[in-house]
Write a protein that binds this DNA or RNA. Sequence first.
DNA 1: CGGGCAATTGAAATACATCAAGGCGTGTGG
DNA 2: CCACACGCCTTGATGTATTTCAATTGCCCG
Lengths: 258, 258
Amino acid sequence: MNKLVEKKPAHTHPARPTATSERSCTVCAVEEFNFCAAVGVALKTGTGDVPCLLPLGAVAQKISARRIICHLNERSESVPVICQGWAALTIALPGGRRQILSFLLPGDTVSMAYLFGPMPGRIVDAITDVTFRSFKRYDLQTLLFKDADFFETVMKAWVEEEERSVQLTVDLGRRTADERLARLILTLAGRLTKRGMMRDLSMEFPLRQHHIADATGLTPVHVSKVIGEFQRADLIEINNRSLTIVDLVALRRVGGIY
Amino acid sequence: MNKLVEKKPAHTHPARPTATSERSCTVCAVEEFNFCAAVGVALKTGTGDVPCLLPLGAVAQKISARRIICHLNERSESVPVICQGWAALTIALPGGRRQILSFLLPGDTVSMAYLFGPMPGRIVDAITDVTFRSFKRYDLQTLLFKDADFFETVMKAWVEEEERSVQLTVDLGRRTADERLARLILTLAGRLTKRGMMRDLSMEFPLRQHHIADATGLTPVHVSKVIGEFQRADLIEINNRSLTIVDLVALRRVGGIY
DNA sequence: CGGGCAATTGAAATACATCAAGGCGTGTGG
DNA sequence: CCACACGCCTTGATGTATTTCAATTGCCCG
């Protein structure tokens, strides 16, 4: 029943997410904030020690890169939480323009606001192959009012989320391409660090340049040029889907962080 | 004690906000959402009919245009709610750059997130002369957990707030100056309509062009040019601090709304 | 081997910023 | 009452960051 040694589906692109084995969320390797764990702790009756017990019947699903995980319609009742891989919360405009509102890393959910109301027009799409669990909005809302700790965790996460959102707004409104790029790298590094996903100053970096472009409000072409400059200036180094920060101080200076 | 006929302080610029008479919040003329009213209703014991009774000891204060209403530090405990006039929630960067996150109209408070956590670096400044009331964060939090209706009102408002914030992000990231301008005007008109502050298609428009610039991520100079075009194209008309939408359909088309 | 996605690079176009000058209205001080 | 300064808006000339267009390469995978 448990297909633990599941080959990566490579390029088969299954149309529907595949239900996989139900392992402990510890594989998330999320050290800091972990939504699943928060739910798990909230539901724990007091004896057990396992952080995430699929408490609300959320089954882990797999979906491969470049596919849409879900739409955040009024109709949608499920709240996906990323277990493994990277995803993007995206809003698409007529004319092919897109804006990425945030990158979702293991332990993240879409948005805390989504527990309280719909987010029309937004979609979650998988950047890498992604493993995620879907909770039911209604269940989470119920839990929210039953468990004060969970409530506080969620509110705190919401405030942090809003802070990041505001920083993005400022980036797009008032900062140059260089600043935006530097800051994107730095905030990603910070978030990965909290999750124990940085080795020294290098990280897995699965983003395609069009993802970066959509997150920073730039063009893929321009992103390519700026990243080229950064590498030539020995600020960063990118090799086969891995980014390492070569000169942290200089990168922070470019990002306007003092 | 009640100085009802208080002359507008013109240009005296008092250093501290002046406490004024405590009138009913009905002068806000806010029809749709009204934070004060929500608090008032939440506190009503069931008999009275007056919407806002200064329930938590919030005294109306006046402050004149171009002054800072408050900083949203960790230290700050007060939550201002606008009664009359326009204010701006602003974030200032080193180098004189500024980004306006939202315009605060009568009935608005700073941000729902602010009830749950600090918003470092943000300030509220008065665009026009402003009358406002300051609640204590702690009081509001307490009320939040006592009154389910108030809680729901706040959460709903938070979700709406987030929606506007996302739209701003998309504007700054992926839309042209024309689109941004058109959309700013349209959303302001929409919000004012809900408050009963539109006559037909015209509204008071106290914004200086640098406010518009800071809200749209543009330069005052460029704002001037675009507004000039809009007027020459008979989309809008601006006369002594009043804006009227001449061609709504065309304006919506420019804003990319179909 | 071929096809599609991704990245790079250069040349040209453009949207917007910067710089600079002038006008207009309004409060201020002589 | 006038002169003046100041904030605000406008307008034109110039500069620049970023986009758009186009061609090329590499790579992965079938």
